[in-house]
């Protein structure tokens, strides 16, 4: 892996950080060292290791991110019910405390490892790596990583997953992408959840939510669905089927976080 290039250097900003890598001594005895590496270098390194591990096992890893209470676990339960006979599914759950979500998933006959982060507001690649030691990935097609409910910090940490799915429940407000641009910019797919409540909410406009996503230069698909309405899940399930098929065919997906950096990496 790249030790020094810095994953976030793009052709556009490279001129800002040009370095010759030499150690320059100044007259007062101090030395200046050009380093030029990503502050998330340790995490990115572990994430790349995780991604190789997933791909070696033929597993598609999907990172679910949203505010607390937007329905990540309910969506997983409905997804397991719909796809459980088609794919072998496993789940990593992230929360500050409790085993509750992992227990909900296990009740559907799917293996789940709970990560309790204590006070930490996000999962990182090392936590996911540790959780993988408790999980047998042989035969697994689809691994969901349910991140800590938080629209800020999880967006900054690559876990080694293949795609970011960001949920926005219709009870939250359609301007969330504008308020939390870093999170929604990272989305490879946006799901507008709890759509069964749209009938009683007159202040959520799904078209506006999508427009705010486009204003972040994000071309991600958007599906509106409710975990309580199985028929509304078709777009999401179709997206998952395609992604699993792509992974099996060796067309590995990469999350859209810092895509230029990732591109630079693969050619560097």
């Amino acid at each position: 892996m790249c030790e020094t290039c810095g994953c976030t250097i793009t052709p556009g900003n490279a001129h800002l950080v040009k370095a010759d890598g030499k150690l320059e001594h100044t007259s007062d005895g101090t030395a200046s060292i050009e380093v030029l590496s990503s502050l998330l270098h340790e995490n990115d390194h572990q994430a790349a290791h995780n991604r190789e591990h997933f791909s070696r096992h033929g597993v598609l890893a999907v990172n679910l991110m949203s505010s607390p209470g937007s329905g990540k676990t309910a969506l997983l339960e409905a997804t397991i019910e719909a796809l459980g006979s088609e794919f072998s599914i496993a789940v990593v759950e992230g929360d500050l405390e409790t085993e509750n979500d992992a227990e909900r998933i296990r009740a559907h006959g799917v293996p789940a490892v709970q990560i309790t982060t204590g006070q930490a507001c996000h999962l990182d690649a090392h936590m996911v790596h540790d959780a993988l030691h408790e999980m047998d990935l042989d035969g697994v097609d689809l691994l969901f990583i349910e991140n800590v409910g938080n629209l800020v910090c999880p967006a900054s940490f690559d876990l080694g997953h293949h795609a970011n799915v960001t949920l926005l429940s219709v009870t939250e407000g359609d301007d969330k992408p504008s308020k939390y641009p870093v999170m929604f910019r990272a989305a490879d797919l946006m799901l507008l959840t709890k759509s069964d409540l749209l009938d009683v909410l007159d202040d959520f406009d799904t078209a506006k939510a999508e427009r705010h996503l486009r204003e972040l230069a994000n071309p991600a698909e958007v599906f509106t669905l409710s975990a309580r309405r199985p028929e509304s899940l078709e777009g999401w399930l179709g997206w998952l089927r395609e992604a699993v098929a792509a992974q099996r065919a060796g067309r590995e997906l990469n999350p859209s976080i810092q895509p230029d950096g990732a591109a630079l990496h693969s050619h560097g």
């Binding site: 800002l16 030395a31 060292i33 990503s38």
Partner: peptide, 21 residues
């Protein structure tokens, strides 16, 4: 147009250090 590439703004870089040897 919203179809744009972000060319600057995502950096999170350690540029350099000054040390006493």
């Amino acid at each position: 147009e919203w179809r744009v590439n972000v060319t600057e703004g995502e950096e999170l870089l350690l540029l350099s250090l000054e040390i006493e040897t």
